[in-house]
Write a protein that binds this DNA or RNA. Structure first.
Lengths: 223, 223
DNA sequence: TATAAGTTGATAGTATTACTATTATATTTG
DNA sequence: CAAATATAATAGTAATACTATCAACTTATA
């Protein structure tokens, strides 16, 4: 249990920041308002200069925390997946029935997210919107292989590996546990994107989440 | 097949270009070499200036065909999905068995793509790599709703709608035909991305394609 | 065949972005 | 209180993403 909990603490790869933003008021302000600003104007239009204006600080001060906006986005998405991993570990420990465990895990990665108030400087609901709209962009760059070697996506892969393990518990014979797990996690984000923007090619309606669709999928495939 | 494909006129939304690139040597050169250059250096680093140097033409000349690089990318991806739609129509007409039809459709959107030689200025194999690495970026922008209204993604949605219709033929009771279809098409791209870059969270190996995984998925869900 | 119309190439120029560097000032800590 | 550290302000650079202008060349048409 001790060992488990120490793995669950929200820790982020040190290579993602120059100075740890959690250690100062300005740092936490950068995190809080970068989430709000990226959500407002989108990652492409987001700049450190605009963020500086928003928090009444200076561009150069933000550069002392993050090398560039890409690393800031990877930081924020790592935070999200770390938070998700924590929720998942919490929800699935002491659940002995593998099917129930799988249902809980799928629910977590497919449901609509609401702010949990535990972290005043991170609004999880807004951060989830950023994940839906911007997460794949952190992967789909020419630097992905180097960044993967540096461990930038470890937390994300850990979340998926947890689901892989549960899938294997449910059905050890199924040969595509990895692809099914990554499909559910990424697919859920995509279905949420579609319900917001390309409504005609998803069954999710406005306030609906992807839980039913993916739970049904997993059960039909594995049971 | 060869002959039918060469008779194919792929039509693309007129709002995507300033001047139709298919109507001139320079235009076709822009298409051909933009595909090669985006594949080489990635869409972020790709600029009209670099493309101009590559084709020994001028930046300003390229701007006479495309307003900006985003519209060029949407043009290229529209071309791809239009080509895919044609292949799908061809492969599924006169197939009376819905299950066989579904298998053929899934195969087309999940298999590894090779250049078909019908269009000398478009290399489909390279274009497919661009789709895998860059397609979602065409959707995930702050302008997606406006561009969707303008019909920028119609061809893509048409491909998915064809699969939706086949799914409904196979099993009219299944309640998530739309989500399943969009999941298969987008998911296949993502699994190909993972096999190239995040190998630990997919079951696809180096030269493998996503056909088996998604065929198995669809059958278990629908039959 | 002359002329108009359209295409391409070359150059210059602008605003913005994505930084780096320097210095001054404020705050914290030892 | 001095030293170390954090932040703010300013300036500057190279690249990007364009726009505008003009000359040269090609093609269509009268």
């Amino acid at each position: 249990m001790q060992n488990l909990l120490s793995n669950l603490k929200i820790t982020i790869n040190e290579k993602l920041y120059v100075k740890d933003p959690e250690t100062s008021e300005l740092g936490r302000n950068i995190l809080k308002n970068s989430i709000i600003l990226i959500d407002e104007i989108g990652f492409e239009a987001f700049t450190f200069k605009k963020l500086g204006e928003k928090i009444q600080s200076n561009e150069s001060s933000i550069y002392r925390y993050f090398e560039n906006k890409h690393k800031l986005l990877v930081y924020l998405t790592s935070w999200y997946w770390s938070w998700m991993e924590y929720r998942m570990a919490f929800a699935t420990t002491n659940v002995s029935n593998p099917i129930e465990k799988l249902e809980k895990a799928i629910k977590l990665v497919t449901e609509n997210i609401v702010d949990d108030n535990a972290t005043p400087h991170i609004n999880e609901e807004i951060l989830n919107r950023i994940i839906v709209e911007e997460f794949t962009k952190t992967l789909m760059t020419k630097e992905v292989d180097n960044e993967n070697k540096e461990g930038f996506f470890l937390v994300y892969k850990r979340v998926i590996n947890r689901i892989i393990d549960i899938i294997k518990e449910v059905n050890p014979e199924y040969p595509y546990a990895k692809s099914l797990a990554s499909n559910i996690v990424e697919g859920a984000l995509h279905q949420h994107f579609l319900k917001n923007h390309l409504k005609t090619i998803t069954n999710l309606s406005e306030k609906e989440c992807a839980t039913e669709f993916y739970t049904d999928m997993a059960k039909k495939i594995l049971l």
